[in-house]
Simulated scan of single mutants.
Amino acid sequence: MSIKLGPNRYGKAETHVVGVTKNGGVHEIRDLNVSVALAGAMDEVHLTGDNGAVLTTDTQKNTVFAFAKEHGITSPEAFGLLLARHFVDSQPTIHHARVSIEEFAWERIVLDASDKQHSFVRSAQETRTARVHYDGEKAWVVAGLQGLVVLNSTGSEFHGYLKDKYTTLQEAYDRVLATEVNAEWRFIGEPSDWDKTYREAKSALLEAFAETYSYSLQQTLYAMGERVLTTCPEIGEVRLSLPNKHHFVVDLSAFGLTNDNEVFYAADRPYGLIEGTVLRDDAPAAGPAWE
């Protein structure tokens, strides 16, 4: 029997860095959770315990903080590219870097008749994400968002599906459609403004959800991915995961009340999970981007 070491990586996970940019009394916040994973000439550390090829995870953590000061944080994608290229290009034993980032949004608290612009409230919407791979020659960037909850109170149907002896679900011709949007999009070109592209992609998702008369969540998923690709030419592929947040009409007849799609029971589980990919025919191969 032959035994050998397979693919491996190591790194510092979840370094939480908050950068404050001060322009006089006007402050801006970038709040990132950064995870680094490195791979390369790491056979000896696994097989013999020789650490000569290892850039310590503590050094990786320190680099995140130092780069936040030296380079600033303009966007999670740009910050991830800086870190990934640094780790590979500065260390001969590191051949591949993956930097995964979550960004937590803060909204400014605006006070009437005040010039103070340094107070913020944590946004309760989505978490922005970015993942960067770099192998010394090429970089791959995947960005996205998680936890963006949306709901249409009408404009959705669901009927005509397969039925067997276990089917009890009634066909719906006017229903609530709600989901939590978890989306990632793979870049095939580097935009001039990462933040602008993020805003455009998010807006495209929301607009498609709101404007699509839906006969299934799958149809809505495709419309959302298609809208992102139409809006953002630098994006080649969109992956969506949409849990169906079921809203069931409550039967109020026992109380002598009618319920014309006005009162619902919002069930948290189990739930349908709709997943899919929408991509350009001519998009180049993904490489390690989705890993």
Rank of each mutant, 00 (worst) to 15 (best):
Leu148His: 12
Ser100His: 09
Arg85Ala: 07
Tyr161Met: 11
Trp140Asn: 05
His96Val: 03
Ser90Val: 03
Ala97Met: 01
Phe104Ser: 10
Asp164Trp: 08
Ala84Met: 09
Ser123Gln: 09
Asp135Pro: 00
Arg131Ala: 05
Arg85Asn: 07
His86Glu: 07
Lys116Pro: 06
Thr127Gly: 09
Tyr134Ile: 02
Leu81Cys: 13
Asp89Met: 04
Phe104His: 14
Val88Cys: 08
Gly155Phe: 01
Pro92Ile: 11
Ser100Thr: 12
Tyr134Asp: 02
Leu148Tyr: 11
Thr93Lys: 09
Arg108Leu: 10
Thr154Phe: 07
Lys138Ile: 12
Glu126Trp: 04
Arg128Tyr: 06
Gln91Trp: 10
Glu126Met: 11
Arg98Ala: 03
Glu102Arg: 13
Leu83Trp: 04
Glu103Gly: 06
Ser156Cys: 08
Ile94Lys: 10
Val149Met: 12
Ser114Asn: 03
Pro92Gln: 11
Thr129Arg: 00
Glu157Ile: 05
Glu103Asn: 05
Tyr166Leu: 14
Thr93Phe: 08
Gly160Lys: 03
Ile94Asp: 04
Val141Lys: 00
Tyr134Gly: 04
Pro92Val: 13
Leu82Asn: 03
His118Val: 02
Asp89Leu: 06
Lys116His: 13
Glu103Trp: 05
Gln117Asp: 07
His96Cys: 02
Leu148Cys: 09
Ser100Glu: 12
Val141Gly: 01
Leu82Val: 02
Trp140Ala: 03
Gln125Leu: 13
Leu81Trp: 04
Leu81Glu: 13
Glu102Ser: 13
Asp135Val: 04
Gln117Asn: 13
Gly136Tyr: 05
Leu162Ser: 03
Tyr166Lys: 12
Ile101Met: 01
Lys163Gly: 09
Ala143Glu: 09
His96Thr: 06
Pro92Gly: 10
His159Arg: 14
Glu102Pro: 02
Ser153Gly: 04
Ala78Arg: 06
Gln146Asn: 14
Ser123Ala: 15
His95Met: 11
Asn152Asp: 10
Ser156Pro: 04
Ala130Asn: 07
Lys165His: 11
Asp164His: 09
Leu162Ala: 07
Thr127Asn: 09
Ala143Trp: 00
Glu103Val: 06
Glu157Arg: 11
Ala143Thr: 08
Phe87Asp: 01
Gln91Met: 03
Ala124Lys: 15
Thr154Trp: 01
His86Gln: 04
Asp164Asn: 15
Thr154Tyr: 07
Leu148Arg: 09
Phe104Lys: 12
Trp140Ser: 06
Lys116Tyr: 08
Asp115Ala: 15
Val132Met: 10
Asp112Gly: 11
Glu126Ala: 13
Asn152Trp: 00
Tyr134Met: 07
Gln91Asn: 15
Arg85Asp: 05
Thr127Gln: 05
Ala124Asp: 15
His133Ala: 05
Ala105Val: 13
Phe158Ile: 02
Thr93Leu: 03
Gln125Val: 08
Arg128Asp: 02
Asp164Glu: 10
Glu107Phe: 03
Ala78Pro: 00
Tyr134Arg: 02
Lys116Glu: 15
Thr127His: 07
Thr154Ala: 12
Phe87Tyr: 08
Ile94Phe: 10
